[in-house]
């Protein structure tokens, strides 16, 4: 059976897909790709279903070798991928052959790179998903991050002739100052007018302590009225939690399902990819938008992905 052998893994490379859904009410985080937009693009570029399992690499990329023909695509942060030492394009389907080595470097900008292979990995989903849950040691590849020597089985060996040339303009220009749109609530009433003003006008910096669980920000403290403890309630992806320290934490893929700190706002779906790619040191400004605007932007992103999928499927 065709397989990929991991030669070096980088600090945090895991198998992720669109997420593990339907178990949040029992306390399971959804997991899944942090930048689900880039994950979907990578899958579409190799002809997979958009939510298929991919490898998510963090900050520094992997080196891997192939033992058969395969079609791969890389999206997200630019890690200057090379095949046998020769630079290849990201955001394009690329054929590799038996004995080829793919090596990636540190991200030039951005934080996370997605690797998809046509046909996908031959790994069994756990609780309906291939995503790695690091805390529970389940899903993905043996429930853990990838390491040197791992052999990832592939479903098919497939050539580019079968799926056709596919490529698009790269969408991985990640800036060092970004604006992230939010909808205020659910506990915006826990903060003073001044606190809300601080949140919406200050510049925050992504902390080194950020992880798949949450993106921590350093910056001005947000003033609350009578504390930030709430009776624990549900958390949505992109929730901006303000703990007692006063600086925001944006809850992401590996977050807890419930929490006891007030949430001042929630990042809109279409901007989660910006947060997922914000490396430590990135400056963030928040901008409040209406729910209508957020839904419009989500619709725009979904339509774009669907159009791209059809365009590539029918080579139009």
């Amino acid at each position: 059976m065709a397989k990929i052998t991991v030669i070096s893994s980088g600090p945090l490379s895991t198998i992720q897909d669109e997420g593990r859904f339907g178990y949040m009410n029992t306390g399971f985080s959804p997991n899944g790709a942090m930048d689900s937009y880039s994950m979907r693009l990578a899958n579409i570029l190799v002809g997979n279903a958009p939510g298929n399992g991919v490898i998510e690499m963090t900050m520094i990329g992997m080196t891997m070798s192939f033992d058969s023909t395969a079609v791969i695509a890389l999206t997200g942060a630019d890690m200057q991928p090379e095949i046998n030492g020769k630079l290849i394009k990201m955001y394009a389907a690329c054929e590799v052959h038996k004995g080829d080595t793919l090596s990636l470097k540190a991200a030039v900008s951005g934080m996370r790179t997605y690797f998809a292979v046509a046909g996908g990995f031959d790994l069994s989903p756990v609780m309906g998903s291939m995503s790695t849950n690091l805390k529970c040691k389940l899903g993905g590849f043996c429930g853990r991050k990838l390491r040197a020597g791992d052999e990832l089985p592939l479903r098919w060996d497939i050539s580019l002739k079968i799926i056709g040339e596919r490529g698009m303009i790269p969408e991985n220009t990640y800036r060092s100052l970004v604006t992230v749109r939010v909808i205020t609530g659910p506990q915006d009433d826990y903060f003073t007018v001044g606190g809300m003003k601080t949140f919406l006008t200050s510049e925050y910096t992504v902390s080194e302590k950020s992880a798949r669980m949450g993106i921590r920000l350093d910056g001005d403290k947000i003033e609350n009225k009578n504390g930030v403890d709430i009776i624990s309630d549900g958390i949505a992806t992109g929730a901006v939690q303000i703990p007692a320290s006063g600086t925001p934490i944006i809850m992401m893929a590996d977050r807890q399902t419930t929490g006891g700190y007030a949430k001042i706002a929630n990042v809109i779906s279409a901007d989660l990819k910006i947060i997922a790619q914000a490396r430590p040191g990135t400056k963030i400004r928040f901008q409040a938008v209406s729910e209508k605007e957020a839904v419009r932007l989500k619709n725009k992103e979904d339509s774009k992905l669907k159009a791209l999928q059809y365009r590539m499927l029918y080579a139009i």
């Binding site: 009776i231 958390i235 949505a236 929630n266 809109i268 779906s269």
Partner: peptide, 17 residues
């Protein structure tokens, strides 16, 4: 009803358990 972004909503029944 408390807004939790564009894809979630919290239905608050009470402030006490």
């Amino acid at each position: 009803f408390l807004s939790c972004g564009d894809s979630a909503v919290t239905v608050e029944f009470s402030k006490e358990m």
